[in-house]
């Protein structure tokens, strides 16, 4: 356990810059907004009815949708940074010529890859959660000032969006991690190119010969998307909103697909480690 802690500390040190980048981007984003508001205020351009909602709007639904939506941008950013970190996970040391130094330490390969996997995913998720939490506070202060805030549905919205991005990050991150064990650089792009090529090839075969070969990209998309039962943006009443929010937990987290996603990710991790373990270090 102590060795794992040491590896995590080392991987945190070398990934720190990339991991913290979303904080700086978010801070820049908020600074720009504040700057815009200040300029607009001095120019007298602020619209006082910007956040006005109709009086009969369902507070639950508004709180929910608002908090669900605002995690979108940090969530996408998190996916991008997961890809950036994971695509160098198992090849960066080789490229930097320090693989021999790390491999010459008496520590299991599984612990080494585990630490890189853990820092790449969990590190990004923690950053995403903190940004989402900050955004949650900001958005709900605004909503509360215009009396459109309900804590339970608001936090559900934020947490559900966060969970959805965590799961997407898990699949994309694991896939990129796997590619980093195979390719020396630009692992994600190369892996994706191969998947696209295989997808197109299978598609052609299926159309030409009437076969039913599984299409890798369709499979991955199916694995990543959330199966929502109803489009929540369609006009709904208070009761429907609460029901949908409750059901959304089942669609996002508490289902067999989640277990399947975790197993898929675990298989990619194990495969990547075995490939990496068997790589010759010249």
């Amino acid at each position: 356990m102590n060795k794992f802690k040491t590896l995590i500390k080392k991987d945190w040190i070398i990934s720190k810059k990339t991991l913290l980048m979303p904080f700086w981007i978010t801070a820049g984003f908020y600074l720009l907004i504040i700057l815009g508001i200040v300029i607009a205020y001095y120019k007298g351009d602020i619209q006082s009815n910007l956040f006005d909602f109709p009086v009969d709007s369902p507070i639950n639904a508004i709180s929910y949708i608002a908090n669900l939506s605002v995690v979108g941008l940090p969530g996408l950013m998190s996916i991008i940074f997961i890809i950036m970190l994971m695509q160098g996970a198992l090849n960066e040391d080789i490229r930097r010529n320090c693989e021999l130094f790390h491999r010459s330490q008496p520590v299991s390969i599984w612990l080494r890859t585990g630490s890189k996997f853990y820092v790449g995913l969990l590190g990004n998720w923690i950053v995403l959660f903190l940004i989402a939490l900050f955004t949650f506070i900001v958005v709900n202060i605004i909503l509360a000032t215009i009396h459109q805030f309900d804590f339970t549905t608001a936090i559900s919205g934020m947490l559900q969006a966060f969970s959805a991005f965590v799961k997407t990050g898990l699949i994309i991150g694991s896939l990129t991690f796997f590619c980093s064990a195979i390719f020396k650089d630009k692992a994600f792009l190369k892996g994706l190119s191969i998947l696209v090529a295989v997808h197109l090839l299978f598609l052609i075969f299926n159309n030409l010969f009437g076969w039913n070969l599984p299409l890798p990209l369709s499979y991955l998309m199916k694995l990543m998307i959330i199966d929502t039962e109803k489009n929540i943006l369609v006009g709904i009443d208070e009761f429907e909103a609460l029901n949908l929010i409750k059901n959304a937990w089942n669609s996002i987290l508490f289902n067999w697909k989640t277990l399947y996603q975790v197993l898929f990710s675990g298989a990619l991790f194990a495969g990547a480690t075995l490939i990496y373990k068997n790589k010759e270090i010249k």
Partner: peptide, 29 residues
């Protein structure tokens, strides 16, 4: 590696760590 220590070309150290972090890293492992 509990029996053998290996020094290849010295430029194989990890450039991203500081001297202290490198010492702590090897000491802990």
């Amino acid at each position: 590696h509990n029996l053998i220590a290996f020094i290849p070309d010295v430029s194989s150290l990890d450039d991203r760590l500081t001297v202290q972090q490198t010492i702590d890293y090897v000491a802990s492992l």
